[in-house]
């Protein structure tokens, strides 16, 4: 029986030891930079706040008489439910993340499409234009917006000069400023995955659809969209997840009525010195953001098991 090229290259790894070594590096990375910090944050969330260095009680206490004693409390999680403030902040963050993702998608899709269909000699330059802002500090770029949006800033000056407004618009320190800043900062994270997806897209499929009588809209809906859907999902995740926890942009551009989780976390940690409470907020945030992804992965794994093929192969199939 003939083996496919993929199986041939995979063969040396069939030896279990080789596979184990290959997986050791990413596994170690995950343990050191994901599992360990999360475990530390989780353990702090179970401790009591106190006046000491660090400002929480140890959760494992060694007692000469009783031996090892575990001293944990769930009160910080109970407080998250008791006080509606956290829910309001969560809704504020999720709303901002959803609108940012949607706006980024609407702007990025035409951009990525233009890049993918542009003549080859232009593509590198266009790609560079998208990536170029990353060469400057993120903080600096957000800070630059405070100047642009200021009452006497260039945007207001221009609108005044054009006679569109009579007095400067209060753009700064508003939810609008935060929205502008978020879309500006996260747009490249939407453009790049979409570009990657659209770049692989075979344009002749659309011609075929047109030959078969599809309108451009039908062709887009039934041919383009399903094929670039993974790019849309990847871009949306890259925008939605970090925006949910964003702190810098709402802090610099936001007004007093901007209520987002990142600021609540800051307040618990710095203003209240409530490290355990801040840790509880962080753990819940992580669960909330990671849970949909984990559920999807679990579902695919189960589906793969049922069909009797490895989950990885099942996913590679479509």
């Amino acid at each position: 029986m003939a083996t496919s090229p993929a199986e041939r290259t995979l063969r040396p790894l069939r030896s279990r030891r080789g596979l184990a070594w290959l997986l050791a590096a990413p596994l170690a990375w995950l343990v050191v930079f994901l599992a360990l910090p999360v475990a530390i944050v989780f353990s702090i969330s179970l401790a009591q706040q106190t006046l000491a260095m660090p400002p929480y009680t140890p959760i494992l206490v060694w007692d000469a008489v009783e031996g090892l004693r575990v001293d944990v409390t769930l009160e910080h999680y109970a407080f998250l439910i008791e006080d509606p403030f956290y829910l309001e902040a969560l809704l504020g963050s999720l709303g901002m993340a959803a609108s940012t993702t949607l706006i980024c998608l609407l702007i990025a899709f035409p951009m990525a499409h233009a890049m993918a269909t542009a003549p080859a000699r232009w593509r590198a330059a266009m790609l560079l234009a998208v990536i170029l802002p990353f060469w400057t500090s993120f903080l600096l770029r957000v800070y630059a917006w405070t100047g642009l949006l200021a009452g006497r800033g260039p945007i207001n000056q221009m609108l005044l000069a054009l006679g569109l407004i009579d007095s400067p618009l209060p753009l700064m320190n508003s939810n609008l400023a935060v929205q502008i800043g978020l879309v500006y900062a996260y747009l490249p994270f939407m453009v790049l995955p979409l570009y990657a997806a659209l770049d692989r897209f075979d344009g002749s499929l659309l011609e075929a659809a047109a030959d078969l009588g599809a309108t451009p809209w039908t062709a887009f809906r039934t041919v383009t969209l399903p094929l670039v859907w993974p790019g849309v999902l990847a871009g949306s995740a890259l925008v939605f997840i970090p925006v949910t926890g964003e702190f810098v942009i709402p802090d610099l551009l936001g007004g007093a009525d901007t209520l987002m989780l990142g600021k609540v976390l800051w307040e618990e940690f710095f203003a209240n010195r409530a490290w355990p409470q801040a840790a509880a907020v962080a753990v819940c945030m992580l669960l909330l953001v990671a849970l949909p992804g984990l559920l999807r992965a679990a579902w695919e794994f189960v589906r793969g098991q049922r069909q009797g093929v490895p989950a990885v192969a099942a996913r590679g199939g479509h």
Binding site: D83, F85, E88, A256, L259
Partner: peptide
């Protein structure tokens, strides 16, 4: 601090 956050958030 909590009353303050609420005040700020309007």
């Amino acid at each position: 601090n909590r009353a303050w956050s609420r005040l700020k958030a309007g």
